[in-house]
Design a protein around this nucleic acid. Structure first.
Length: 501
RNA sequence: GCCCCCAUCGUCUAGCGGCCCAGGACGGAGCCCUCUCAAGGCUCAAACAGGGGUUCGAGUCCCCUUGGGGGCACCA
């Protein structure tokens, strides 16, 4: 156990904005938040950052809740569960930000700005034309409070900007990268409060993190450039900063850049997705998704890779986090999914498989499914794979293809002959249990002098309609003698018909 | 353009100065097992970006170059 984690309990927060589908990048941040909170006996807080009403998407918040719950990351405080530090939705905290911004203005750390978006835009264009760095020119920076208040009273619209130090440096510490020293001249007077009265992320996040007593902030590395500003805001209030942990960004599978919205949406055509809701539908297990994303940017040692959520709670540590960007590797997700599927109990797997069969249009008898499950368990990469592999168990009839029915190195006539012999064996046997069918069929193989694969292949295609199926004898027992014989007879008829031509 | 971050097999990574002619995993190749497909077992190919330092000793520390990534909004 990490000594520093033992010292105090952590309060972490997952603070998404409800502007689109939840993807595994945010899921990974939430996971780390959850792990640290659980490990230290602290709290995992969910806060909705919805200050930009224009970008808020209907239903996105619900998708977030569903995604977190699916992954098993239940939050201790936040929407739907409440808590002592609410409200947990930023649009409900507008006044808090306004008061805090005013406080910064009064202490000389911020200022009212009356410049219009148009003048700012013109200013920026001029700077670009002159090859200067774009930044706020400082027109309103030294307006007196009394003058500003008069203009506000007169009805002028305003924003509140942070008064960034003009010189010197700002030193900040990221837990993964150590100290960063930034020249204050490269920092802009960012907007804290928009003209609509809502706070921008920079102010809202800082104020909330402090008020909610957040101890550790996990967030994406895309926040690194504004990190000094956020630290400066904390300091302007005289507050103690939380520990900052900037997580590496995810690159597209090729490793060439971040995935665009378009590319993310197109992935689904290949049966892959970065969105949590899709992963569920594609047949991935939340256990596998957690395992996979946990390892993208974190490792435990030089050989352990299989982790359940409780394992992760126990073993996670900030100091083993990796700051370098990581390319997404979907085949590794497949691997973990197979591993976790095999780790499930038969009963559990059968329950999870059921909706997939139903979605495919099958009427599922859970007792039959329970019998099927053990023989397909180690063959599944995703839950969805079960349908093409085992759908025939729930079909009335199967449709073998003649060419596939004909055994390797045999013609239709030869295959027909063998098929008839198989039928004879099956009819002679009292039932189709493993112990009763397998020995006589193997004897048959010996008598024919053919390869086991040739003989069993004929039966397989006849009974399952598939070239590739779960183990044959186990399958026969589940399908039942009556259906097996019926299917075999249909196959024999098919062979006879082709033989007649 | 400016600012910031990063840099070990194709990919995810272990490595926090000697344990490393660099370990694991995915993927790839091969073999074994075998009624198909899997699963499993074994084997193989595959990396410290380059150059300077520091040191008795550098993948590990420092600098430069190169490469990659991120950010420069009244978005988060």
């Amino acid at each position: 156990m990490e000594r520093f984690n033992m010292e105090k309990t952590a309060r972490t927060r997952f603070a998404p904005s409800p502007t689109g589908h939840m993807h595994f990048g945010s899921a990974r941040t939430a996971l780390y938040d959850y792990l640290l909170a659980r490990q230290t006996g602290g709290q995992f807080i969910l806060r909705i950052e919805d200050t930009d009403k224009k970008r808020t998407v209907e239903g996105a918040e619900e998708e977030l809740y569903a995604g977190l719950r699916w992954l098993g990351l239940q939050w201790d405080e936040g929407p739907q569960v409440g808590g002592q530090y609410g409200p947990y939705r930023q649009t409900e905290r507008k006044e808090i930000y306004l008061q805090h911004a005013r406080r910064l203005v009064e202490t000389g750390h911020a200022f009212y700005c009356f410049c219009t978006p148009e003048t700012i835009k013109a200013e920026r264009e001029k700077q670009i034309a002159n090859k200067e760095n774009t930044h706020y020119s400082g027109t309103c920076r030294n307006l007196s409070l009394t003058e500003a208040d008069q203009r506000i009273a007169a009805g002028e619209t305003f924003v509140i900007r942070f008064k960034t130090p003009l010189d010197g440096v700002t030193r900040v510490v990221d837990e993964l990268r150590g100290e960063m020293v930034i020249d204050n001249r490269t920092l802009d007077d960012i907007i804290l409060i928009k003209s609509d009265g809502f706070a921008l992320y920079h102010l809202a996040a800082v104020v909330d993190d402090h008020l909610m007593e957040i101890t550790h902030v996990f967030r994406g590395a895309e926040w690194l450039p504004t990190f000094p500003l956020h630290a400066l805001i904390h300091r302007a209030f005289g507050w103690v900063e939380p520990k900052w942990i900037h997580l590496s960004v995810f690159l597209k599978p090729s490793g060439k850049g971040k995935m665009s919205k378009r590319e993310a949406a197109d992935l689904i055509q290949d049966g892959r997705s970065i969105f949590i809701k899709d992963l569920l539908e594609l047949g991935y297990l939340p256990e596998a998704v957690n395992n996979w994303i946990a390892l993208m940017g974190w490792s435990y040692d030089d050989h352990t890779e299989f982790f359940t959520l409780p394992d992760l709670v126990e073993k996670f540590s900030i100091q083993k986090l990796n700051p370098s960007p990581a390319a997404i590797n979907f085949t590794k997700l497949d691997h973990f999914n197979g591993l976790h599927i095999r780790n499930l109990t038969v009963d559990d797997l059968a329950q999870r498989l059921k909706p997939f069969f139903e979605k495919a249009g099958y009427k599922v008898d859970i007792d039959v499914l329970r019998k099927i499950t053990p023989i397909i368990q180690e063959r599944l990469v995703t839950l969805d794979d079960a349908i093409p592999l085992a759908g025939f168990f729930f079909e009335e009839k199967v449709s073998p293809i003649l060419d596939e029915l004909i055994a390797k190195k045999l013609d239709a006539a030869g295959t027909l002959e063998i098929a008839r012999k198989i039928l004879a064996v099956l009819e002679a046997v009292p039932n189709l249990e493993l112990d009763t069918v397998e020995p006589p069929l193997r004897t048959l193989v010996e008598k024919t002098g053919l390869k086991p694969g040739q003989v069993f292949g004929i039966l397989r295609v006849a009974v399952t309609g598939l070239m590739v199926s779960p183990p044959l004898f186990e399958s026969l027992a589940i399908i039942g003698r009556e259906k097996v014989i019926e299917r075999l007879k249909i196959a024999i008829a098919l062979l006879e018909e082709s033989n007649d031509r």
